[in-house]
């Protein structure tokens, strides 16, 4: 087990939880500063990609099974459109967040938060899916002719 890649592994082990938490920080603080769903999703995925690069795709897939990323991929879009439908059910127009709460400003805040969460989820799942698709592919030798 004592391997030459040990430096990478140990340091990454220490870093990965912080990377993930940083991504979530970016997600929830998009209202106040730079950041938001798109960025957070990518950084969150980057944490997993680092894990996959170092510990192997199989390990990554054990932590994050492919059914789960596909579920995230779809449910992010679903959350986003669901917010719109919820607004319609509550008497507003599609994606009109004012009606989500008694106070329009509060409703807007809630709507933006949920929508960003949906975006983040989709982007995260899309990036992990794409990475795993590329990494899990076998190389083929070019045909000689």
């Amino acid at each position: 087990m004592m391997h030459r890649k040990i430096i990478l592994r140990i340091v990454s082990k220490q870093l990965i939880p912080f990377i993930l938490l940083f991504a979530l920080y970016v997600q929830w603080h998009g209202d106040f500063g730079p950041g938001g769903g798109f960025q957070a999703g990518v950084i969150f995925a980057a944490g997993f990609i680092l894990y996959g690069i170092l510990f192997g795709l199989g390990t990554l897939r054990r932590v994050l099974p492919s059914w789960f990323t596909r579920l995230c991929l779809a449910s992010g879009v679903l959350i986003y459109s669901g917010v719109g439908v919820a607004a319609m059910l509550m008497g507003g127009q599609y994606l009109d967040y004012d009606v989500l709460s008694d106070d329009p400003v509060h409703g807007q805040e809630l709507g933006i938060l949920l929508v960003e969460a949906g975006v983040g989820l989709t982007v995260f799942a899309a990036m992990v899916t794409i990475f795993c698709a590329f990494a899990g592919r076998d190389r083929v030798t070019p045909r000689k002719n």
Partner: peptide
């Protein structure tokens, strides 16, 4: 906006 710097450092490493 120093979060940006942190992202750069992170992405650079990965």
């Amino acid at each position: 906006f120093l979060d940006l710097s942190l992202v750069y450092a992170l992405i650079n490493f990965i």
